[in-house]
C-alpha cells in the first residue's frame, strides 16, 4: 500500500472537546504567526513552501526495512524546519497533516489542532531550536545535533499525544506514556537516521540551500530556548509520568481537566503539596538523561559512518 498511516495521527473521538479546542487555539495562533512571518520572506517562498509540503508528503512514503516486518520512515517535522526555517517548516507540516486528515482520514478534523501541534509545531520547534544552537559549528556537529533533534522531535510528539489522551480521559497515564514513548523511541531512531542521511546528502550536493534557510530567520535565541525547553520536558516528564502518575494526575485535576468521569475522587485532593517529591523520581529523571545520551551516542556513530562512506 502506498499510503501508510503513521501512529501519531489521533482520530476524532479520542480527545475530549476541551483538549481539542485548547490545541486548536494554540495551533491557530502559531499558524497565524507563521503566516505573518513567512509572508514577508518574498514571493518565491509561496511555490517553494507548496512544493516542500508535497515533498514531505512524498518523503514520508520512503521507508527502509528495520526488522521483523517493521519499517522505518520519516515524519519530517525536524527536517522541514531545518531546511526551510521554523515558521515555513510549521506551515508546510500543517498543510501535510491537514491533507492527510482530510483526504485520507488519517487523523481527525476536530482533533486536527492537536495533531498539528504534536507533529508539526513541536517537531519543528525542537528540530530547528536544537539545530540553531550549533549553526556555527562544524558539519559533523550539525549532523549529530540534527539527529538527536529528530529523535527528540518524535519523542516530544509522542509525549504530547499521550498527555492529550490522558487529559481527555481516554488513556491511563502510567500505561500510555511508557507505551507510546517506548514505541516511538524506536520509530524516532528511524527518523534520526533518515534526517541525518538526508541532510548529509544536501550538504554534499547543495550546501548553499541550507545556508539560505539558516540565514532566513532572525531570532535564534528564542528558538534555541524553545527547543531546549521541549527537549527538557521530554527528558523530565516522560519518566515522571510513568513513575509517579499520581503527581501529574493531581496537577491536571487542579488545573480543571477531567471534566467528565474521572472527576470526583481527584477533585477533593487539591491543595498545594509538592507532588513531584517521590523517592524514585530523581533516579528516573537520571534514567531519562542516560537514555538521551545513549541515543545521542548511536546517532553520533551513525553520523560518522555516513561521513566515512561519503568521502
Amino acid at each position: 500500500m502506498l499510503y501508510v498511516p503513521a501512529p501519531l495521527h489521533i482520530p476524532d473521538g479520542f480527545l475530549s472537546l476541551t483538549i481539542s479546542l485548547i490545541c486548536w487555539a494554540i495551533t491557530a495562533l502559531a499558524v497565524t504567526v507563521a503566516v505573518r512571518r513567512t509572508g514577508s520572506l518574498g514571493e518565491r517562498q509561496v511555490p517553494l513552501m507548496g512544493i516542500m509540503a508535497a515533498f514531505i508528503f512524498a518523503a514520508q512514503m520512503i521507508n527502509f526495512p528495520v526488522a521483523g516486518g517493521t519499517s522505518g520512515h520519516l515524519l519530517g517535522g525536524a527536517l522541514a524546519a531545518i531546511v526551510l526555517g521554523p515558521w515555513a517548516g510549521m506551515l508546510v507540516m500543517t498543510a501535510v497533516i491537514a491533507v492527510q486528515g482530510l483526504l485520507f482520514q488519517d487523523g481527525g478534523l476536530l482533533v486536527m489542532g492537536a495533531n498539528i501541534l504534536n507533529m508539526g509545531l513541536l517537531t519543528a520547534a525542537v528540530g530547528y531550536g536544537l539545530y540553531r544552537i550549533v549553526e556555527e559549528r562544524s558539519r559533523k556537529t550539525k549532523l549529530i545535533v540534527a539527529g538527536v533533534a529528530a529523535w527528540l522531535s518524535v519523542m516530544a510528539a509522542a509525549l504530547s499525544t499521550s498527555l492529550q489522551l490522558w487529559l481527555s480521559g481516554t488513556a491511563r497515564l502510567d500505561i500510555v506514556v511508557p507505551a507510546m514513548l517506548g514505541v516511538h523511541a524506536l520509530i524516532g531512531l528511524g527518523e534520526a537516521l533518515i534526517t541525518v542521511a538526508a541532510l548529509a546528502f544536501i550538504f554534499r550536493t547543495r550546501p548553499d540551500l541550507l545556508e539560505q534557510a539558516e540565514g532566513a530567520e532572525g531570532n535564534g535565541r528564542g528558538w534555541a530556548a524553545a527547543g531546549l525547553l521541549i527537549a527538557l520536558a521530554v527528558v523530565v516528564l516522560s519518566p515522571l509520568a510513568s513513575a509517579n502518575p499520581d503527581g501529574l494526575e493531581r496537577v491536571a485535576a487542579d488545573l480543571g481537566f477531567f471534566d467528565r468521569g474521572v472527576s470526583s475522587p481527584l477533585n477533593f485532593l487539591s491543595g498545594y503539596t509538592l507532588p513531584f517529591l517521590g523517592e524514585g523520581v530523581l533516579s528516573t529523571i537520571l534514567a531519562g538523561v542516560v537514555g538521551v545520551l545513549v541515543v545521542a551516542g548511536v546517532v553520533f556513530v551513525a553520523a560518522r559512518l555516513f561521513r566515512e562512506r561519503t568521502t
Binding site: 511555490p47 517553494l48 516542500m52 515533498f55 526488522a67 520512515h73 537516521l193 541525518v196 542521511a197 548529509a200
Partner: peptide
C-alpha cells in the same frame, strides 16, 4: 546492515528534496 539501509533511504529523501527544490524554481 540497518545503518546502510537507513542511509540509502536518507539519500533518496535528499535526492527528492533537491529535485523538488529545483522544480519549485521552475514553477516560480
Amino acid at each position: 546492515p540497518i545503518i546502510w539501509r537507513a542511509r540509502v533511504a536518507g539519500n533518496m529523501v535528499g535526492q527528492l528534496f533537491l529535485r523538488s527544490y529545483e522544480r519549485s524554481d521552475r514553477i516560480y
